[in-house]
Design a protein around this nucleic acid. Sequence first.
DNA 1: AACAAAATATGATAATTGTCATACTTTGTT
DNA 2: AACAAAGTATGACAATTATCATATTTTGTT
Lengths: 225, 225
Amino acid sequence: MSKCEQCIVRQFSSLKALNKEELLRMADCKTSYTIKKGEPIFEEGEVTNGIYCIKDGICKLSKLSDNGKDQIVKLVKPGELLGQRSMISDEPANLSAVALEDMEVCFIPRSEVMQFFNQNNQFSMNVMRTICDDLKGADDHMVNMAQKTVRQRLGETLIYLEDTFGKNEDGSLHIQLSREELAGMIGTATESCIRLLSELNKSGYIELTGKKITLLDKNKLKRLT
Amino acid sequence: MSKCEQCIVRQFSSLKALNKEELLRMADCKTSYTIKKGEPIFEEGEVTNGIYCIKDGICKLSKLSDNGKDQIVKLVKPGELLGQRSMISDEPANLSAVALEDMEVCFIPRSEVMQFFNQNNQFSMNVMRTICDDLKGADDHMVNMAQKTVRQRLGETLIYLEDTFGKNEDGSLHIQLSREELAGMIGTATESCIRLLSELNKSGYIELTGKKITLLDKNKLKRLT
DNA sequence: AACAAAATATGATAATTGTCATACTTTGTT
DNA sequence: AACAAAGTATGACAATTATCATATTTTGTT
């Protein structure tokens, strides 16, 4: 069993506040999983009873709307934690977490995390700041959803994907989303998403090569009307 | 100067965890304000340096979008606190708070609240739970904005307003929002909002009498297509 | 009471977006 | 290699929503 000390999650998440002894305790009670692309880590409404450390792979946090469509609320990358809000509110998950790539995650039971939370002030402060960041992000996201057109949201989302998850050597977006998933981020119909991508392609703002998307003019993408 | 002990905010907010001594300290350093309808408590980007207790009156939390429209993110009622996220993140306000009615509020300096926060575990836990609730609410709200039609959002918003702020004796909504503000909650153009209200009026789902709105069939409003 | 300003209402029209149908392409499986 | 299934693409059309113009009503101020 690995010791958590060198783990990427420890470097980037709230867990950076844990001391050696706490890390050892955590290493002792953690469970490691591999999750295949497309599989859930947990689903909306499920009692999670702990938090997940994302060691490798990207996942989506989404919620099923009444109209049957899945709205993607956030993408999560290695180094981040999942389930902090549910842990603190002591509620079932509000969102589903599904792997977009093969993933490696560790599960830490609620009881253990709550001990750190109560004993280690810096850790609990880190958790709070993360949740505050999420709240700010969600408010901003909400305003965009309410006030911007689908076309604007698509442009901004493409830029976000490049800035957050990077490019391949050929310059195309590293993260691979299906058209349906991209539509689910933007909050539109899959066909509309496909159609707008085609249009941006023809206008020379992006280049579509098979499933690959390459951003050609980020400035123009930022200022779509 | 009143003593905070009997204050509605103390009963309903995170502050319920404060003991008598802490309440006295708070009473000692608080500043009371009256805010007239239409005036801001604070504005987006402003450094708040403390939290506000809402003793009386309702206010809106909103954010100006690039298109020049003001999106209302949340309504806040007496008993609630404002500025908790900014206090914890140590960041300027992400949203503007503007009075929808004449208000009475108290300001507590950041330094004081952070003392309670660090010393009183129950208080900090309450603050965290509030922020977690806000995060859940914001995620759900975002999904609605992205996936529902303007008409559905209007129906649900009207029901929310009745359920949250109650009715007058004549059955009309107690809270008074301008059409522009209602449009700002729903995320649509003012004219569209007015037009849809007219339509719901003609269909007998609601009744418009001057500025007053009365919900006649909440079930049908819930299931607008 | 009279007036200007703001808010509400409605019409006409354009733009955006969703839906359904269908074709084409890619992927994975046997 | 062959096939089914899934994903992507595009057309045609309908529905929704925004925009601009213009009345009408309400509100606040003098």
